[in-house]
Simulated scan of single mutants.
Amino acid sequence: MRRAIAAVDADPGASLDALAAAAGLSPAHFQRVFSAWAGISPKRLGGFLALGHAKRLLRERRSVLDTALDVGLSGTSRLHDLFLRWEAMSPGEYARGGEGLRVRHGTFDSPFGPMLAMATDRGLCGIAFAGETGAAAALADMAARWPRAELREDRAAVAPHVAALFAPRAEARLHLIGAPFQIKVWEALMRIPSGHVTTYGEIARAIGKPKAVRAVGTAVGRNPVSFLIPCHRALRASGALGGYHWGLPVKRAMLAWESARLERAGACEPVAGG
């Protein structure tokens, strides 16, 4: 599916026959498999992947974070979102660079390409998408965030945490490892409902630091748990995608995937107050 999304992203107007041929499938089988995963046709997903889609999201479904909470768009009531139980590493633990912490990791398939998942005994602490960087570079990037932690490859231990990631209404446990300011930003990101977006400026205001837009952008980029902490839902005030640590094609694919699921559920109305 990642290759199919990349093909649609490269040419949103590509024919079904061409996409199916590139995937090595018959057009009918490709359409069934693609629609089962995305919930819509490749042609419709092409519209969501177009560069203008992010601007439409910002204009039509901008999320004011506190309002999203007020109308119940958090926790188990967020359509197609996971229910996240999370706890943060203490500032002292963070300052020690993860010393004494055992982090297990493994590589898994995902709708957005190969995914590195990392977990402590308290929950998922890292998710990286390695399609653009490669698995070794993704692991080195994540490991550098907690230089004194003990890293151990143990796919079986991480697999139960990964199993629920792309299933609706499931529960995941997170162990956030970051500086206090970063964790405040990541907590704000977790308030953004699926299928909605916000801006770096709105996040800064939501955490009570309206002038810290640049610092917020840096913290968004340092999010260690991609997708679950939805930094892909943060855009520039202009509606431009901005950067994305694991590559802009992944960010566009995530926004398109969420929009497709919401459209299929008939839940595309704007957030009240947004």
Rank of each mutant, 00 (worst) to 15 (best):
V103C: 01
R104H: 12
F108Q: 10
F108L: 08
P111S: 05
P114L: 03
M115S: 06
L116W: 07
L116G: 06
A117E: 10
M118E: 06
A119N: 02
T120Y: 01
G123T: 05
G126P: 05
F129W: 10
F129S: 01
F129N: 04
A130R: 14
E132P: 13
G134K: 14
A135M: 15
A136Y: 13
L139A: 08
L139P: 09
D141M: 09
A143N: 13
A143L: 11
A143R: 14
A144D: 05
W146K: 07
L151K: 14
R152F: 14
E153H: 14
D154N: 06
D154R: 07
R155H: 15
A156L: 13
A157I: 03
H161S: 06
V162A: 08
A163Y: 03
A164D: 12
A167S: 14
P168K: 00
A170R: 00
E171I: 07
A172K: 00
A172G: 11
A172C: 11
R173W: 11
R173Y: 09
R173A: 13
L174P: 15
L176F: 13
A179L: 12
F181C: 04
Q182S: 09
K184N: 01
V185W: 04
W186H: 00
L189P: 11
L189Q: 10
M190G: 12
I192G: 13
P193I: 00
P193Q: 02
G195R: 04
G195A: 01
G195F: 07
H196L: 12
V197H: 08
V197K: 09
T199W: 01
Y200H: 03
Y200N: 02
E202D: 10
R205A: 12
A206I: 09
G208E: 05
K209E: 14
K209T: 13
K209P: 09
K211L: 10
A212V: 05
V213R: 09
V213E: 10
A215N: 12
V216E: 03
G217M: 02
T218L: 07
A219F: 06
A219T: 01
V220D: 00
G221F: 02
R222I: 02
P224A: 09
V225W: 01
S226I: 14
L228R: 04
L228N: 10
L228I: 10
L228G: 08
L228S: 07
I229K: 01
H232G: 12
R233M: 06
R233T: 06
